[in-house]
């Protein structure tokens, strides 16, 4: 698992619950420190174990914790860049859904060893979609649910999301878009402000 992803998990936990639970989870994993290097690829089992330790330590079920992580990634001002990246993908929420397939390749353009979950969208008509998510991290589909929920909000779309469990090694997320312009979208422009 890429160090940048573990760092995002760390930021989420520390911002939401404080440094204590993060340090406790690192200790539970038998780690000497609490820091991860951003450009090192770690064993996926390590991230998996950290998530379990956090879930136990915080008494929050793993799916809920992962969904919170997804929401945090989109909504925290600290990762405004991530939100902008996602908004790059489409002018509206449904455009965005269709462009998700390209997300891992786009991330790899800049960071060649970044392996994001492989996403595949299937349209079932009338605003219904089934998104499959294949990842090293069990429960990545829940992170996706959190991200999609926050992005729907960001686009001002009204959508319901449902994690349907795993089929054929991929987690399935059902998306139902009721109204694509339910509320005013958060203002957004594509311009990247570096720094």
């Amino acid at each position: 698992m890429h160090g940048l992803i573990i760092q995002a998990l760390q930021r989420f936990i520390v911002d939401t619950y404080g440094a204590g639970p993060w340090a406790a989870a690192c200790r539970a994993m038998g780690l000497a420190g609490t820091e991860f290097e951003p450009m090192i690829v770690y064993d996926p089992a390590l991230t998996d174990g950290l998530v379990d330790a956090l879930s136990t330590g915080l008494s929050r079920p793993r799916p809920a914790l992962l969904e919170d992580l997804g929401t945090y990634l989109v909504s925290t001002p600290k990762s405004a860049g991530f939100r902008r990246l996602l908004r790059f993908l489409g002018a509206g929420f449904e455009d965005f859904l269709h462009a998700l397939d390209d997300l891992p390749d786009r991330a790899r353009l800049a960071i060649p060893d970044m392996r994001l979950p492989v996403l595949a969208l299937r349209s079932e008509g009338a605003g219904c979609y089934l998104l499959s998510c294949r990842s090293h991290l069990p429960g990545a589909g829940h992170v996706l649910v959190g991200v999609l929920r926050a992005m729907a909000d960001d686009y001002g779309a009204l959508a319901t999301l449902d994690h349907r469990g795993e089929t054929g090694g991929a987690e399935q997320v059902a998306v139902q878009v009721h109204v694509s312009r339910f509320a005013e979208a958060r203002t957004f422009d594509l311009g990247a402000r570096t720094g």
Partner: peptide
């Protein structure tokens, strides 16, 4: 759009490297 995506990802990666 690809270019902008690249710029944004690069900025995030550079920020992480700078911190490191």
């Amino acid at each position: 759009v690809e270019l902008l995506f690249l710029v944004e990802t690069k900025s995030a990666a550079m920020a992480a490297l700078q911190q490191m």
